[in-house]
Amino acid sequence: MAELSANSSAAEIIAHLRSIGSEENRRGMLRYGIKIDRALGISHGVQRQIARQIKRNHERAFELWESGIMEAQFIASVTADPKRFTAENARRWAASFDSWDIVDGVSDLFVDTDCWRELIEEFAADDREFVRRTAFAMMAWSVVHRKKEPDATFLDFLRLVEAHATDSRNFVKKAVNWALRSMGKRSFALHGPVLVMAEKLAASPDKTTRWIGKDAVKELTGPKTLEHLQRKADAK
């Protein structure tokens, strides 16, 4: 089989993916709660390497997505053009999410689109488990990707954290917690208000809300987090 390149077609890429899939890796994915019905068993490292080889191609990305193969869909998200990716595109892709792994990978793309804040609001209000997870995965990724975003944006997200902190579904509550912790580690300016919210949640009579809050408080008050924030402040 010829080596993949920027000129490779979606069919050639999919054929290559099928040729390197691993049943052992597929079984290993189960240990992490990843659905393997649509997976070939290819590591994220290899998937990213393939994405670098084939380079960005927006039209081809949609062909890869339509294959339904999880690895092809992840590569599609890495090679699609976020500036051309619309809210409707995101809605269609999110509607097929069925595993936390694909949610977290594709949310990376969604955060780089021009409609990312609109999508967070919309997806948080959506009751489908993996669509709602998408909102909070995007929130967490935006801390990393949206470096120039004002703190006010993230402070506003706290209302969504509080509103959905009672959602006891495993893949939602973990994403809400992830988003809260990530925002609290962005800067000292955010750390204080986020910690206040975490402490409020930790005092809740609701079991899920309390877990989200307590876990966030533990990390946000830990020496590693405080040292990380100090290093960021000193670097400015």
Rank of each mutant, 00 (worst) to 15 (best):
S8A: 13
E12W: 10
I20V: 15
I20P: 08
N25R: 12
L30A: 10
I34C: 01
K35D: 14
I36F: 03
I42C: 02
H44D: 06
V46F: 01
I50G: 09
I50H: 06
R52P: 04
Q53G: 05
R56Q: 15
R56V: 12
H58Y: 01
E59S: 12
E59V: 00
L64W: 09
S67C: 13
M70V: 10
E71N: 02
A80F: 00
A80G: 09
D81L: 04
R84N: 14
E88L: 10
R91D: 14
A95K: 11
A95G: 09
D108N: 14
C115V: 12
I120A: 08
A124T: 08
A125Q: 14
D127V: 11
R133E: 06
R133W: 10
T134Y: 01
A152N: 00
T153Y: 09
F154E: 07
V161H: 05
H164E: 04
N170R: 13
K174R: 15
V176K: 02
L180S: 03
S182E: 10
S182N: 13
M183W: 05
M183C: 08
A198H: 03
S204V: 05
D206E: 15
D206T: 06
R210I: 03
R210Y: 11
W211M: 05
D215Q: 13
G222F: 07
P223K: 08
L226S: 04
H228T: 00
L229H: 09
K232P: 03
A233T: 01
D234K: 11
